[in-house]
């Protein structure tokens, strides 16, 4: 019963948010129907950040405690995060096309997301290039920590760079109440999705570790 709770909750929230995005929420005046992509893009960006926060926490705990489960947490969260970041970039690009007439714009948040995407890639690359598992985990943790701390500075620099003032339009009263509600439901739906995906990935990672252990033991008894 318990293991189905979150997936079912996620499914219900997803359906509700779909209904709200397509039926309930009014069409934005200036941007038109395209603006509805906003309710997908913001949650994607949120997941990218949330995942990275978990990568950061997992990385610190792994370096301090040296327990494989913290690395498993960081790694699993990074995988979900990479998917979310890629999603945010694709969706952002789909939005940019009709609004600004280009596929890519150096809008500060989009730029920061791109940098985040490269940091995620570095996280996986250093792991596969380290040659040996525990070293890869350690190096990746270093990237996870440095990258996360870098993120606010990246956002600050890109915002200033495009001549815009920090702070979003979302909660500064610029959003109509039905829009805000739709956004919040979408955020909730995607957050639950994140937890479900993270749990699945963690279970898989644990199974991988058990399998490797069994294989190692087997090859030892054979030799």
């Amino acid at each position: 019963m318990r293991r189905y709770f979150l997936p079912v909750l996620g499914l219900i929230l997803m359906l509700v948010s779909l209904y709200m995005v397509f039926v309930y929420v009014p069409t934005e005046k200036e941007m038109g129907i395209v603006q509805r992509i906003f309710y997908l893009m913001v949650p994607m960006g949120w997941l990218a950040l949330l995942s990275f926060l978990l990568v950061f926490i997992g990385s610190i705990l792994y370096l301090v405690k040296r327990q494989a489960r913290w690395d498993a947490l960081a790694y699993s969260s990074a995988e979900v995060g990479l998917v979310a970041t890629t999603g945010a970039l694709v969706v952002g690009s789909l939005w940019a096309r009709p609004i600004w007439g280009v596929w890519w714009t150096w809008e500060p948040r989009l730029t920061a997301t791109l940098v985040l995407w490269f940091v995620y890639l570095a996280y996986f690359m250093v792991r596969s290039f380290a040659g040996e598992e525990s070293r890869g985990a350690r190096f990746a943790a270093v990237i996870g920590i440095v990258g996360f701390i870098d993120l606010p500075i990246v956002v600050l620099a890109t915002t200033l760079w495009r001549g815009m003032h920090p702070g979003g339009v979302i909660f500064s009263g610029g959003l109509e109440s039905r829009m805000l509600l739709t956004l919040l439901v979408s955020l909730a739906a995607f957050t639950v999705l994140y937890v479900v995906l993270l749990n699945l990935r963690l279970a898989l990672k644990n199974a991988e570790m058990v399998l490797k252990q069994v294989q190692a033991n087997k090859s030892e008894t054979e030799s």
Partner: peptide
């Protein structure tokens, strides 16, 4: 009781 593992290799 010294052990050293490199990932799954002991």
């Amino acid at each position: 009781g010294l052990t050293k593992s490199f990932g799954s290799h002991l």
